[in-house]
């Protein structure tokens, strides 16, 4: 009896243990590779434990600690401030879109949706941002372009649509202003949805290097991701196109694999720490809009 009950359980446990291993092992090997010597990797391949501990990769990546620290600060500011503002903006527009008594609902929805499918393309947006809005080399250029992401707006809208309209009506009857309804009723009710969107947009801001590649020349405004991306790119370029390069540039002694992994850890570390705080809301938030009622 006992056995019959525990066998399927064990199977299920096994399955999940395997699944967890599949998730954790790559992470461990990344850590291991980042602590390995480049030649050990070539000789022994990727291993779960380094043949011998070696900090060359970290020395290479962290060679300029002040620069990295500064980049970290920029990334942190952009991610935190950007996420807060963008969630507020997106909550605002999603709320108006979710209200069935809003007259231009369809037009505005279309306007939001349209940008998901069509955009001006790289060069026009570069011209707009650098020549007309003069946002080049400001911290705002890293924040503003991602303020309103249409996909998240639609996600939030369907979440807010599930809040019964009668709640809003009864608030109105009690004399609450539109702003008060939004701030005190809708936002708290939409918390799981907001948390999901906040996490997504936090990741978006944290992982972005594209905007800084295009618009940032000032070393003081370079965010972490771009700095690491650039380092990686420099290594990559030197190791793979050494034939095309004029002579004199050599790729000698660049830790490439291990440095890549050390960077992955530096870049992903903070996000790994943040994730559990969102997790509570995350599961609920993800199913948002999955069932339409």
């Amino acid at each position: 009896m006992k056995f019959r009950k525990s066998l399927p359980k064990m199977l299920i446990h096994m399955l999940f243990i395997l699944f967890s291993l599949a998730c954790i092992l790559p992470l461990i090997s990344i850590i291991s590779i980042s602590f390995s010597n480049e030649s050990d990797i070539l000789d022994h391949g990727y291993r779960l434990f380094p043949v011998k501990f070696d900090f060359t990769a970290y020395v290479y990546v962290l060679y300029r600690p002040l620069q990295i620290l500064n980049a970290f600060k920029v990334s942190l500011f952009v991610s935190v401030f950007g996420t807060i503002v963008s969630v507020l903006v997106m909550a605002g527009i999603s709320y108006s879109l979710s209200r069935s008594d809003y007259k231009f609902k369809n037009q505005l929805s279309f306007y939001v949706f349209f940008t998901m499918l069509f955009n001006g393309g790289l060069v026009p947006s570069y011209i707009l941002i650098s020549n007309y809005l003069h946002l080049k080399n400001t911290v705002w250029v890293l924040i503003l372009p991602y303020l309103a992401m249409p996909w998240f707006i639609l996600l939030l809208r369907s979440f807010m649509q599930k809040i019964p309209h009668s709640i809003i009506e009864s608030c109105m009857m009690d004399g609450a202003s539109e702003f008060r309804i939004f701030a005190q009723i809708i936002l708290p009710l939409a918390k799981p949805g907001l948390a999901t969107v906040a996490l997504f947009s936090l990741l978006q801001y944290w992982n972005d290097w594209w905007l800084s590649l295009l618009y940032i020349d000032n070393e003081k405004l370079v965010p972490l991701q771009y700095m690491l991306y650039r380092m990686m790119n420099n290594i990559e370029f030197l190791t793979h196109s050494s034939n095309a390069l004029p002579s004199g540039v050599t790729a000698a002694r660049l830790p490439s694999e291990s440095a890549r992994m050390a960077m992955a850890i530096l870049a992903a570390g903070p996000m790994l720490a943040v994730f559990p705080f969102f997790q509570k809301h995350f599961v609920r938030g993800l199913t948002v809009g999955a069932v339409k009622g």
Binding site: V123, I127, L214, R230
Partner: peptide, 17 residues
């Protein structure tokens, strides 16, 4: 940086900056 130059110059040139 090496890896960014091509892309960056393409945008700079195309934008007429």
């Amino acid at each position: 940086a090496w890896g960014d130059y091509d892309q960056k110059m393409q945008v700079v040139i195309a934008s007429g900056e």
